[in-house]
């Protein structure tokens, strides 16, 4: 069974559906900000809001807001020079870059790619390069685009179009030139901007003999181990794909194949996976670094190769996304299905 960890949990009802949530890069020691993509079902309006988190007074207050043309399907935030960049793709297919001044955390300017220019479908996934304004967008329509922001304009180009033969559901930068995408059948593709025309390397594990295939929902790559790609998806599956050992995935969690050697913390969709940034000194270099997952059955947990999973939260509703604060890795923010946000401070 899972071990339960002690942590402080605060829940903040939003009275709106929380489509996505991210911490903003922390620019001063006292001000903590999170960006929330919200959908108000009463007025059918979507927005991206920056909220100010005050740990001492246990409050999460809206600071500034930007009206989105439609629901946000993917949201990422990064720091670029002295500005915070938030990128969001919407269900109408548009892509928006929002810039925020570091000190007041208000959303100041916006540049966007109109509907239809990048994707023809409602579902897409974006990833923003660390300390950069280069963005990769992938979609169920099988298109892979690169978007970069110049001084006043946006440049975008289509790197690949599978014409719907392959759908992509997740993307993550590995280096300034390389990124990884994920899709149906627990497949992963490794891309290199310098080699257009298709993925450089493809992976599809052969563990799915018993019809337990699924979809990759989220990918993470640790900056110190770029050859290992962590992926989470259907059926509680979390696996790592080591480029040096291409044929076999390292399964970290999964209900699908009846493999009793691997503990499974969840049996439903793993919506997001991230390496746990809280540093543990005794992690062996041969093992996969510990990672955090959130799932449709309401679990937020840390899983580590060969260890019992540590359960951080067990909610009665789905946890749709989460983010670990880079500067305070003990703090985790997550979005709950029941129109709320939870902030967790690990002891």
């Amino acid at each position: 069974m899972a071990v339960t960890a002690i942590s402080e949990i605060q829940r903040f009802p939003q009275y709106k559906y929380v489509d996505a949530v991210r911490w903003l890069p922390q620019l001063s020691a006292f001000d903590r900000f999170a960006v929330l993509a919200l959908f108000d079902s009463d007025s059918d309006a979507s927005s991206i809001e920056i909220h100010h988190f005050k740990p001492n007074s246990l409050s999460l207050e809206p600071q500034s807001s930007w009206v989105s043309p439609s629901r946000v399907v993917s949201l990422k935030a990064a720091q670029f020079l002295q500005k915070t960049v938030v990128v969001a793709s919407t269900s109408s297919g548009s892509l928006h870059f929002l810039f925020s001044d570091s000190t007041v955390a208000s959303l100041e300017s916006e540049v966007s790619v109109p509907e239809g220019a990048l994707h023809s479908v409602a579902s897409s996934c974006v990833d923003l390069m660390d300390r950069g304004v280069e963005c990769v967008t992938v979609g169920e329509d099988g298109r892979v685009n690169l978007v970069s922001v110049g001084d006043s304009n946006l440049n975008y180009r289509r790197l690949f179009d599978s014409a719907g033969l392959v759908s992509y559901t997740a993307a993550k930068w590995a280096s300034p030139m390389e990124f990884v995408t994920g899709g149906y059948g627990f497949s992963l593709q490794w891309w290199d901007q310098r080699k257009p025309g298709g993925p450089v390397s493809q992976f599809k594990g052969n563990w799915d003999q018993k019809l337990t295939s699924g979809i990759v929902h989220s990918i993470d790559i640790h900056p110190s181990r770029k050859h290992t790609c962590l992926a989470g998806g259907s059926l509680g599956t979390v696996f790592a794909w080591d480029l040096r050992w291409q044929q076999q995935p390292i399964i970290l969690s999964g209900a699908g194949d009846g493999n009793t050697a691997v503990q499974s913390i969840s049996e439903s969709e793993v919506w997001e996976v991230q390496y746990d940034r809280r540093i543990k000194s005794n992690t062996s270099s041969t093992r996969i670094l510990p990672s955090m997952i959130c799932s449709e059955d309401g679990i937020l947990a840390v899983i580590e190769q060969g260890e019992e999973p540590i359960e951080l939260l067990a909610e009665p509703c789905a946890i749709n996304s989460f983010d670990i604060d880079r500067h305070n890795p003990s703090d985790v923010i997550c979005s709950l299905e029941w129109e709320a946000v939870a902030i967790l401070t690990r002891q």
Partner: peptide, 16 residues
């Protein structure tokens, strides 16, 4: 062929 490649991967082995 690259476009088809991913799709064919998806089809997987004969057991499916």
């Amino acid at each position: 062929f690259k476009q088809w490649e991913g799709m064919i991967e998806l089809l997987g082995s004969e057991s499916k």
